[in-house]
Amino acid sequence: MNFEISSHDDVTIVEVTGQLIVGNRQELKDEVLRLLEGGSRKYLIDFSDTAYIDSSGLGVLVSLSKKVREKGGEMRLSNLNEDLRTLFELTKLDTLFFIADSRDLALENF
């Protein structure tokens, strides 16, 4: 997994490439926590190049989103492929995240 960080106005966009799984989830977590420490409050995690997230990857997303919320911020997800979308729906995690079909839709009213 790699991730690229860019920003759009006050939104930090984290683009995840490859799988987000037990072996690499910590890197993503550390990076976002560092940014959170640095004052960023709005995050968009973009999964257009992510094929697969395992349960611990989901765990990291949940805990990050909680931490961001505690600081008064928000974390959104975008570009989940059909598989991932299904995963979020089946586990009812879609009720906990703002999930957008595209990056632009996610950035609207953010």
Partner: peptide, 24 residues
């Protein structure tokens, strides 16, 4: 609680998903 893979198989019908009733 958020478990994706729970099914009922009845007669010859396709497996019916017993969908999550809450997040994990």
């Amino acid at each position: 609680a958020g478990h994706a893979h729970a099914f009922r198989v009845h007669g010859d019908e396709p497996a019916q998903r017993l969908t999550a009733t809450s997040p994990p």
